[in-house]
Design a protein around this nucleic acid. Structure first.
Length: 291
DNA sequence: ATCCAGGTGATCA
DNA sequence: TGATCACATGGA
């Protein structure tokens, strides 16, 4: 990987195991907006950043080398050795070999804990498309205005304090649906520091998950997604409708309950579980497996 | 018109 | 534990 700064832009050459379209189409990065030139723009950590990729060259615009080192390097998980992970997963069986090959450029990004908490509460019994719309509305109405980029206004994700200050009606007007009360409740708990969301990553996966599950609107699947996308937990395996389908198709000969599929997978894949999950999720959804 | 969407919480056996 | 239901909303 060769990195240099030029004209308010950071260029990363010879990047491996990285494909932005796959990454942003894999059920994470709900706020990244695709531009007409096929680049993506988002507010991350209070900064507007634009990303594009041509072959094995990554372009990060509206930023500099210091922010790359301090923020983007870890955010894009460039410190994680995906070649080794993919190699290990591919050797498990042919299904996984195919899934890894298909999603060769996938990466689990290092998202913000609070944002993942709200995002995945919204995802319950909801479509990714709808979740994206609700988050857009919340950010536009209640997120801090960050600035303009290429003629478009950008807002931060609303803070816990801000969301806690809203009435259920105001939340409902953003199309949160029946999840309004969950958003309200977790916002109050996090904003008053009854739960220190940002210290959970220090705990082991089970403690981490149990703390998250103490919040209303957060069950096993949502907790797993938060831990996977913002706390770098690897020995977890979010099982949703897609994962149940693909796991049943590939590994199970009987109808197994979701908790059992989860334990089965974690026992089978160990510390590769979350990565396996991501490759299988993308594979299943793109190829409509089991539906 | 009916079903479904990256599920969760409540209730009942 | 396991099964069943309601839950807001909008797209297919």
């Amino acid at each position: 990987m060769d990195i240099y700064e030029k004209d308010n832009m950071v260029v990363v050459e010879n990047i491996c195991d990285f494909h932005i379209d796959q990454i942003f189409d894999s059920g994470q990065g709900f706020r990244w907006k695709k531009q007409d030139d096929n680049s993506y723009t988002c507010v991350v950590k209070g900064k507007i950043i634009n990303v594009s990729q041509i072959g094995n060259v990554l372009y990060l615009r509206n930023t500099n080398i210091d922010d790359f080192k301090n923020l983007w390097y870890k955010y894009f998980s460039l410190d994680v050795d995906y070649s080794s992970i993919k190699d290990k997963i591919s050797k498990i069986d042919d299904n996984l070999k195919d899934a890894v090959e298909f999603g060769h450029g996938l990466r689990i990004l290092d998202h913000d804990e609070w944002e993942m908490l709200i995002t995945f509460i919204l995802s319950t019994n909801n479509s990714i498309q709808m979740v994206t719309k609700v988050i857009d509305t919340l950010c536009e109405r209640y997120g801090d205005y960050i600035g303009e980029y290429e003629g478009e206004k950008y807002y931060a994700f609303p803070t816990p304090q801000k969301l806690a200050s809203l009435s259920l009606d105001e939340l409902r007007e953003c199309k949160t649906g029946f999840r309004d009360k969950y958003i309200k409740s977790v916002s109050e708990i996090v904003s008053t520091n009854q739960l220190d969301l940002y210290s959970l990553s220090n705990l082991d996966s089970d403690d981490c998950i149990n703390n998250l599950k103490s919040l209303s609107g957060v069950g096993m699947k949502v907790a797993d997604c938060i831990a996977m996308f913002s706390m770098r937990k690897c020995d977890i395996f979010p099982v949703d409708i897609w994962m149940k389908r693909v796991m049943t198709e590939f590994y199970l000969d009987t109808d197994m309950s979701i908790p059992k599929i989860r334990s089965f997978a974690i026992e089978k894949f160990g510390y590769l579980s979350s990565y396996v999950q991501q490759y299988l999720f993308y594979y299943a959804r793109e190829k409509n497996i089991g539906k």
